[in-house]
């Protein structure tokens, strides 16, 4: 299996502090991967690098069949290449309706000229409706997304990511602040999504990671500490020491 995303030898320094230290790892084309690690381990920074928000000091990041380098692309170009990102706190456009949020995310030409003359067709509207139903918001298309509950906003954001049809999805702490029922729904969504694309989930909650039932990468001080099944890594003494042993 060739890798969809290849990160190798990446380092980032913020004001002399090494947040990512010679980090290397690969994600396969249809893989679900969980990344865990203590606060400040560099999980969010890793996502920032892949999505073009932060430029690494050294190393390479390549993506796709033709292994294009992501380091020269802008955030928008990376997103268009097929990488979607979900943030730690839900970020939807609260001033706009669920429909508008999803329509904006729908995979369509993104240039200002194309967008100016774009008017949603019947199939577009149907696709948005289907997406909304998939994430449990079928009844809420006309509502302002600012009125949604915290969990619903998280799902809307996941729906927007689905609409983008990314080949790689980066999800930062999706379960934070969710009720138990919402967590279960979210787990199911993530597992379902990983059937057709690669999904990388950053999560603190061990129960949540266990339910995902996938390969786990442990980050610590900006580098990979251990990798394998959850049971495998939780038996690793150094993991126990830096992460699990804390509390």
């Amino acid at each position: 299996m060739s890798a969809l995303l290849e990160v190798s030898g990446v380092s980032v320094t913020f004001d002399g502090f090494r947040a990512i230290n010679n980090l290397s790892f690969n994600i396969g084309a249809r893989e679900l991967r969980a990344i865990i690690g203590p606060n400040g381990a560099g999980k969010t920074t890793f996502m920032d690098i892949v999505t073009g928000k932060t430029r690494p000091d050294q190393g390479s990041v390549t993506f796709g069949d033709r292994s294009i380098s992501l380091l020269k692309l802008s955030e928008a170009q990376i997103a268009q290449a097929g990488i979607g990102r979900k943030f730690q706190r839900p970020t939807v456009f609260e001033d706009q309706t669920v429909f508008d949020n999803l329509m904006m995310a729908l995979k369509k030409p993104r240039s200002p000229f194309a967008v100016l003359f774009f008017r949603p067709s019947q199939p577009d509207a149907a696709r948005v409706q289907a997406l909304a139903e998939e994430v449990g918001l079928g009844q809420h298309l006309a509502r302002k997304s600012g009125e949604l509950s915290h969990g619903q906003k998280q799902w809307l954001e996941i729906g927007m990511l689905l609409a983008q049809e990314p080949r790689l999805l980066l999800v930062d702490e999706p379960a934070a602040g969710m009720t138990l029922a919402e967590r279960e729904h979210t787990t199911a969504l993530l597992v379902e999504m990983a059937k057709t694309r690669a999904v990388v989930v950053v999560e603190h909650d061990m129960e949540f990671v266990r339910r995902l039932d996938c390969k786990v990468t442990v980050l610590h001080e900006g580098a990979v500490l251990a990798e394998g099944s959850l049971d495998h890594v939780t038996r690793n003494p150094s993991v126990i020491e830096v992460y699990l042993g804390r509390g």
Binding site: S74, A76, Q77, Q80, S111
Partner: peptide
């Protein structure tokens, strides 16, 4: 966020 949606 708009950038990550792919809009320049």
């Amino acid at each position: 966020r708009v950038r990550f949606l792919g809009y320049s």
